[in-house]
Amino acid sequence: MAKITFIEHNGTSHVVEAENGVSVMRAAVDHNVPGIDGDCGGECACATCHVYVEAAWQGVVGGRTETEETMLSFAAATQDNSRLCCQITVSDALDGLVVHTPDGQH
């Protein structure tokens, strides 16, 4: 289990208790976190689960996959700490993770 905080562009926070083994995207969608659509269902194929990972967590979360890199290069407002959160798997190590959602992802 991991407690994950999603912070919207307008500052609204959503704290989600996520099960180990699911993706961060799935945890967000299942808890109706706004701004994370996950249209492709977690195939790294739509870039609608774009998040910014807080600096302190970047090392824990890790880097992008090759496909993710490409999909993010087409997304709006990509930054160094951008990830597609369907590619991040929840584990105990992510307990306390904080991510931000971009403006107008949806």
């Binding site: 290069s73 709006a76 407002a77 107008g104």
Partner: peptide, 18 residues
């Protein structure tokens, strides 16, 4: 493909859509 797509995509980015 990637290079040319990136030129066009900003016009349909959220900020421009608004």
């Amino acid at each position: 493909h990637d290079e040319q797509r990136k030129v066009v995509s900003p016009i349909v980015a959220p900020g421009n859509l608004a």
